[in-house]
Write a protein that binds this DNA or RNA. Sequence first.
DNA 1: AAGAGGCCCTGATAGC
DNA 2: TGCTATCAGGGCCTCT
Length: 287
Amino acid sequence: MPELPEVEVVKQSLNENIIHKTIKKVIVRNRNLRFKIPFNFENSIKNKKIIKVDRFSKYLIIYLSGEKICLIHLGMSGTIHIIYKKKFLKFTNASFYNSPCLPNKHNHIELIFDSLKIIYNDPRRFGFFELLKNKKDLKKRLNHLGYEPFDKHFNVKYLLKFFKRKNKNIKSFLLDQKFVSGIGNIYASEILFKSKINPNKKAKLLNKTECGLIIRNSKKILMDAINKGGSSIKNFKNTDGKHGTFQNNFYVYQREGLNCKRINCDGRIKKKIFSKRSSFFCNICQK
DNA sequence: AAGAGGCCCTGATAGC
DNA sequence: TGCTATCAGGGCCTCT
């Protein structure tokens, strides 16, 4: 689910809802996420105020009062839900602060504020919550990540230089977070379709024009997706439980066997596995 | 240095 | 119906 656009949607909604609020209580039901949540986690963030919620790549960054920073990754299946106290009390007499919200065994973490709480749900537990000491720590932690597609440094010169003497295909580079960060398997396929480039094409064979297309279309597709509330595959929902709609704009992802949507192209969408990940593409108009 | 592969984990779906 | 196999949007680690 969560690539850059989906995480951005979550970030915006968190900012609207929890900024300047104080964490009154923390419940951890399952510490075994990708990284084990230490036993002092709850006390470390209790009574801290939310300064701001930010995002880099697919990471959510919650700045807390007193310098500490909560870094969150949603992995493959993580979602964050907001439960409003008023609404909650309309439907039940249970205690807002103590009751295990909603019948879901994968609700692993709750941050409880006065008027609402946020719940982290993650069936596959590939996501994580990490507490960092300060900004310097954060910088170190995210140091391995490449530019976001929106960064001005993500330009033709950078691409050509990066691809030199490399042997991988372009699709795996788009998924390589050291090269460009924030793109995942869905948007990688969509970007390459829009750029008319075959996912299995060796990156070092791409010319300036093709690199330019990849850059422009990365920005465009991710922005479009953000504006449509992200893509809801399986069950991605935003914090209000609403679905995004960008999946309705997919040209290739999960369209195996269907006609190519490009005007004047008679192709059909193929699905092939390259470097262990499925790729969707039209083998007629993507060269 | 670069690339391939394995692994973490649950759930949905397909095939028998 | 109930079993098993396969696959899923990510990232980190190890080995060659």
